[in-house]
Design a protein around this nucleic acid. Sequence first.
DNA 1: TCGCCGCGATAGCGTTCCGTTATGGATCTG
DNA 2: CAGATCCATAACGGAACGCTATCGCGGCGA
Lengths: 302, 302
Amino acid sequence: MDLNLRHVRAFVSVAHLRSFTRAASLLNLSQPALTVQIRRLEEALAVRLLDRNSRSVAPTRVGRELLPVFQRVLRELDSVVVDTRDLAARRHGTVRIAALPSVAAGLLPDAIASFRAAHPRMSFVVKDVIAERVLALVRREEVDLGVTGGEVRDPDLTVLARAADTLHVVYPEGHPIGAVATVTLEALAEHPLVLMDAETSVRAVVDAAFVAAGRLPVTACEATYMMTAVGMVRAGLGLTILPGSAREIRAEPDLRSRPISEASFSRPVCLIAKAGRTLPAAAEDFLGELVPALEAEFATGA
Amino acid sequence: MDLNLRHVRAFVSVAHLRSFTRAASLLNLSQPALTVQIRRLEEALAVRLLDRNSRSVAPTRVGRELLPVFQRVLRELDSVVVDTRDLAARRHGTVRIAALPSVAAGLLPDAIASFRAAHPRMSFVVKDVIAERVLALVRREEVDLGVTGGEVRDPDLTVLARAADTLHVVYPEGHPIGAVATVTLEALAEHPLVLMDAETSVRAVVDAAFVAAGRLPVTACEATYMMTAVGMVRAGLGLTILPGSAREIRAEPDLRSRPISEASFSRPVCLIAKAGRTLPAAAEDFLGELVPALEAEFATGA
DNA sequence: TCGCCGCGATAGCGTTCCGTTATGGATCTG
DNA sequence: CAGATCCATAACGGAACGCTATCGCGGCGA
């Protein structure tokens, strides 16, 4: 005979109430059933746990020593069950997300704030890392969701949503680029540009687009951080090209931005998850907030 | 459906081996049975614990988080079972004994040493207290066994063995009391005596015996500790009367002792336990050593 | 002192649960 | 494309469990 949680619960109840009859009614069980359960437990442990006669019930010394151990284990398991059921019932939980820094600083905080307004006990862990790290974190299941740039062709990953992150040109109010009908690569090539550092994915897109068009950008400056590039634009060093998702393009009140009407200046943004894995309920729910936010962000070209 | 240890074990095995088939053979179970058990557990927790398809099995995030908790609980319960079974199999255990100081210093250490020679993993807790405290400790089940003096007429207590503790007279080698055929109260009344303090149970017996005989002892000195009384005898202050069970009567090489042949100078020594309680296996076993030791000690009058 | 009452133990029976074999569907492999 | 492998499902048979009924024992009141 094997140890069984039901038997343990029975023993704890009887030991506590010091009565088979009362414990039985508490457990919604007949008294003979309890007698048998206690006997089974005692057989499993090969020890007498309760000294009992028709007049009184009391735990033996071994029973007294085992009681707190059993109680602790039961409490522990019960809280596991309750917590896990709560988790499933979407009452609380933690969503772990890896996202590109622009997304992590931009639409993600808004989406999280909005979601938490409706689900106060949900918590979030956000990792802002470059596209490649996003893929790795999702693949290793260190995060539930990932927002990354570029095409995703990994069979281990599922694309839950995709949107186009359009690069924007950022310019000082009154700059001639604000007056043209559509911002094209040709138009950009006319002006000195503040470009992102060669290491960045934004720069990679810009370079590729210029190469494809057979043109060369007029480089005024290079910057590693978007905020620096914006500062340079404000100072009149030139225009800069930043993802529409980046908050920095709206950081300066006297700067304006416009989407660049050029397919090569847009790159896919993918919301991904590990393929073949059940998404935690909390993450599943958060999708309802995040997917529309992604679509809205990139549809308006804001 | 309720949480069941078998299901938990099943989950831990499958999660560890990442295979239903292998876990099933490990658990001596059919694979479909395991499938059902995992489903039951998942239903109980209302959460998916394992992501599985025909090609691979991997715990979900929730499953991964629950795994260490389950493992700890299982290990804990398993060790409880093993320890308790060991206890029952008399392979180890602790015996708790309350005994009169004379017994605790005298025959008890020998009995324990002898018992531990045969059962090395048994351990002992000995409390040396006065008769009344012995009764209380046994009644409150703070000890398994008690060795006390006097008659025991408590329905809460069971007398497992009884013996007579004969008071001995202790005298210097060559003292005339060593020459008489039998040591009687009359003979003792002839000599100055070193008596125990009035608080002690030994003194109570001595006083009662002299009162009953209508005699008065010649009191040379009083001592609280038996060792002190023995020292006084060695110094020639008189004879003293000590329990035969007391080690002190043999502490001085040039002192002799003889039992007093007087019923009133003998008091019962009882080995007791709580009535209606199952004795722990270790204590039960120790009785096999202690009872003969008690009988031997008091039969020889040593 | 006798009979009643309350409590735990036991017996017999019915149901529920669980594990087994057989089989299906999906996926990787040669 | 056929075979092998692995998990899921279905149907069946047996074991386990809980229930009702009853017994034995000890305390208590008449």
